[in-house]
Amino acid sequence: ITIHVNGVTYHFDNPEEAEKFAQKMAKTYQLKMEIHNGEFHME
């Protein structure tokens, strides 16, 4: 699972971890999250 946050790329093997991380980042930084081709993009 690949997550892009403001141009920084994070890779996770565990989908649950990826989702937790994505939600935490979105909440902490008030980010808008989109999913493209199974990759999370946040800005």
Rank of each mutant, 00 (worst) to 15 (best):
G7Q: 06
E19Y: 14
V5D: 01
Q30K: 09
D13L: 12
F40Q: 04
A26F: 10
N6G: 09
F12S: 00
M25Q: 02
I3P: 00
E43G: 09
H36Y: 11
K20H: 10
K24T: 09
N14A: 06
E17L: 10
K24G: 03
F21A: 01
I35Y: 11
K32G: 09
G7V: 15
H11P: 01
F12T: 00
N37C: 15
I3W: 05
V5L: 06
E34C: 15
H41F: 14
T2E: 04
Y10M: 02
I1G: 02
M25H: 01
N14Q: 07
F12Y: 02
A18D: 00
E16N: 07
A26D: 06
M33A: 02
T28G: 02
E17P: 02
N6S: 08
N14Y: 05
T28D: 15
E19D: 08
Q30I: 03
N37V: 06
K32F: 13
H4T: 06
H36P: 02
I3D: 01
H11L: 07
K24C: 15
E16Q: 08
H11Y: 10
G38W: 06
I1L: 06
I3Y: 05
P15I: 12
E16H: 10
H41T: 05
A26P: 01
A22P: 00
P15F: 13
N37E: 05
P15E: 06
E17F: 06
H4A: 04
T28I: 14
E17H: 06
T28E: 15
H36R: 13
V8I: 09
K32E: 13
A18I: 02
N14V: 09
Q30M: 05
I35W: 08
P15Q: 07
Y10W: 08
A22V: 13
G7R: 07
V5K: 01
A22N: 01
D13K: 08
M25R: 01
F21P: 00
M42L: 12
M25W: 08
H11R: 09
D13W: 11
E39T: 05
A26H: 05
H36C: 14
M25F: 03
G38F: 06
M25A: 02
A18L: 04
F21L: 01
A22I: 13
T9Q: 12
E34K: 10
F21W: 11
Y10G: 00
V8Q: 08
H4W: 12
E43S: 12
I3C: 14
K20S: 10
L31C: 15
Q30W: 09
D13Q: 09
N6W: 15
Y29L: 10
E39N: 04
V8F: 12
F40G: 02
E34N: 08
P15S: 09
N37D: 07
Q30L: 05
V5I: 09
V8R: 13
E43W: 15
G38D: 03
I3V: 12
H41N: 03
V8S: 08
L31Q: 05
Y10T: 01
E34G: 04
K32L: 14
M42C: 13
D13R: 10
T2M: 07
Y29F: 06
L31Y: 09
A22F: 04
A18V: 04
K24Y: 15
L31W: 05
A22D: 00
A18C: 14
V5Y: 06
E17M: 08
I3G: 02
K20Y: 08
A26G: 06
A26I: 12
M25V: 04
N37W: 10
P15L: 12
H11F: 10
Q23D: 07
L31F: 08
M42S: 03
F12Q: 00
A18Q: 01
V8C: 15
H11E: 05
D13G: 09
V8W: 13
E43Y: 15
